[in-house]
């Protein structure tokens, strides 16, 4: 079992919402990365929860940058550290809007160039910072302020897009499994080149559940197969334990959906879309893991 350091790199405490899984995710990301790290943060919840000038809760250098610019900024930064002979971890910590929508071009460009940094997308499946507008990562059926009747389209398959760049390491994670998250960040940072971790980040106000259920919500996502924990190292897929178990004996999808206000009154077509997407993903990953694809 991995030993997680006791050090905290966030001083008590950020102004994140009570029960925020972004904060929890960031705790473990920084524990894994350690002090020789710079975080690059585009516009997202994390850019506003650090504190107001001249104070910050972040006890690590954080470069806040424009919405679409994170991956490009990080690629410049890692090149500069390399030019200066420094071994500093550069980590982009971006929300789903800054990743799957406005930031996708910079992400794609940096990954194609083989830039040496870790990109972490914490995904609460909407523009949380501005009050939950739909993003490309919002799942079908979810109500947001710009999809009041529920989103009619599926969640964009970000992982497939990233995988198409053949990065040496990519993984999914969720703060409900902090040790898994911690060791994935550690492993990613031990590898040279572009690395990617996609973290599901349940959001109490956005998903409309009460704050104490954040950890449970991540677990429900994994157990229902709506979120699959896996790694892809140099192209080789490993499905992680909790998702392996879920593939054998998943809980009903409704257990996940019914727990969240955003899916209240979801139409059967959207449920079918969610179900078929989950099944398709599981099938594809299983085949990849077995080397059939």
């Amino acid at each position: 079992m991995t030993d997680i350091p006791r050090e905290e790199y966030i001083l008590k405490c950020t102004s994140a919402c009570a029960g925020c899984s972004d904060s929890l995710t960031l705790r473990y990301v920084l524990k894994a990365a350690g002090p020789e790290t710079v975080l690059v943060v585009p516009a997202c919840c994390t850019s506003v929860i650090q504190g107001i000038y001249p104070q910050t809760a972040m006890n690590i250098p954080v470069y806040n940058v424009a919405f679409a610019a994170a991956a490009a900024c990080a690629s410049g930064m890692s090149a500069a550290f390399e030019a200066a002979g420094k071994k500093t971890n550069v980590i982009v910590y971006a929300g789903d809007g800054g990743t799957v929508d406005i930031g996708i071009q910079a992400l794609s460009g940096a990954f194609e160039r083989g830039a040496n940094f870790l990109y972490i997308c914490y995904d609460n499946e909407a523009y949380g910072n501005t009050g939950m507008q739909r993003s490309g990562a919002t799942p079908a059926g979810a109500r947001t302020t710009t999809t009041p009747a529920g989103k009619g389209q599926s969640k964009k398959d970000l992982d497939a897009i990233v995988a198409a760049h053949n990065p040496p390491y990519m993984a999914t994670a969720c703060a409900s499994y902090p040790k898994d998250l911690f060791s994935k960040v550690q492993k990613a940072l031990s590898i040279r080149g572009p690395k990617f971790i996609h973290v599901l980040a349940p959001c109490p106000p956005g998903w409309r559940y009460s704050s104490e259920r954040s950890i449970e919500m991540g677990r429900l996502a994994v157990r229902s197969g709506m979120w699959i924990l896996y790694e892809r190292e140099y192209g080789k897929v490993t499905i992680n334990g909790p998702s392996k178990a879920a593939m054998i004996r998943p809980i009903p999808l409704e257990d996940y959906l019914d727990a969240q206000g955003r899916f209240k009154g979801i139409c059967p077509e959207a449920v079918a879309m969610l179900r078929s997407l989950a099944e398709r993903n599981a099938k594809r990953l299983k085949r990849e893991e077995e080397g059939i694809c």
């Binding site: 006791r6 966030i10 950020t14 029960g19 925020c20 929890l24 104490e212 954040s214």
Partner: peptide, 26 residues
């Protein structure tokens, strides 16, 4: 699981900063 690390190693809850999310209880 405390998102704000408001619970110490000795499992003391720092009530100056605990936002009362209830994850610990849950």
């Amino acid at each position: 699981f405390c998102p704000d690390a408001a619970i110490s190693e000795d499992l003391e809850i720092d009530l100056d900063f605990c936002k009362g999310c209830g994850i610990c209880a849950h």
